[in-house]
């Protein structure tokens, strides 16, 4: 019968650092916030720390929610690449959130360290238009090749897709 409580605003978590990178806690899960330049180096460290599996790689477009909570010193950018790593040996998970600016939407590919990230990076490229440098095959994976735009971006307009309706919806909206 507990009431749902949202975390009190203003109680910033203790600034902590792990592997030289700001660490935060999200509902009991460890989250690292590397910079874009330090991303691959951190992955290499974590790979040596038995995080041998890249369980998930995805991205979020924070265009409509720029005021999200981030540890001190991390400037919020429009895109965020989210990587979930798994250590089978230690039975642990860790999450990486890398800020990617809109002006230069690109990040290094994790393919050389985690070959399993290949399809997931292609999906992020397809859906968000974030380019992964040195990716072996950066093409669209889910959408058709001649698709314009990146569907999961918040400013992607689904209504621009031509459909075969004959009704004039603009008239109905104005009346």
């Amino acid at each position: 019968m507990s009431e749902v409580t949202s975390p009190e605003p203003g109680t910033a978590p203790e600034p902590s650092v792990l592997y030289g990178v700001p660490l935060s806690d999200s509902r009991g899960q460890r989250v690292l916030h590397p910079t874009r330049d330090g991303y691959i180096a951190l992955l290499r460290t974590l790979l040596d720390e038995t995080f041998t599996m890249c369980a998930d790689l995805t991205a979020v477009d924070y265009l409509l929610h720029m005021g999200r909570a981030l540890p001190e010193g991390i400037a919020a950018e429009r895109f965020e690449v989210v990587v979930n790593l798994l250590s089978i040996e230690r039975r642990e998970r860790i999450r990486l959130r890398v800020q990617v600016p809109e002006s230069d939407a690109s990040i290094a590919s994790a393919f050389d360290l985690y070959p399993g990230a290949e399809a997931m990076e292609r999906e992020v490229f397809d859906m968000f238009g974030i380019a992964f440098t040195d990716h072996p095959d950066l093409t669209r994976i889910l959408m058709p090749e001649d698709w314009e735009g990146h569907p999961l971006r918040k400013d992607d307009d689904p209504s621009r897709i031509p459909v075969q309706f004959t009704a004039d919806f603009s008239k109905r909206a104005s009346s």
Binding site: V4, A55, V60, V82
Partner: peptide, 9 residues
């Protein structure tokens, strides 16, 4: 649902 992000597997 309160702000935040979570990964559950």
């Amino acid at each position: 649902v309160p702000e935040g992000e979570v990964y559950v597997a």
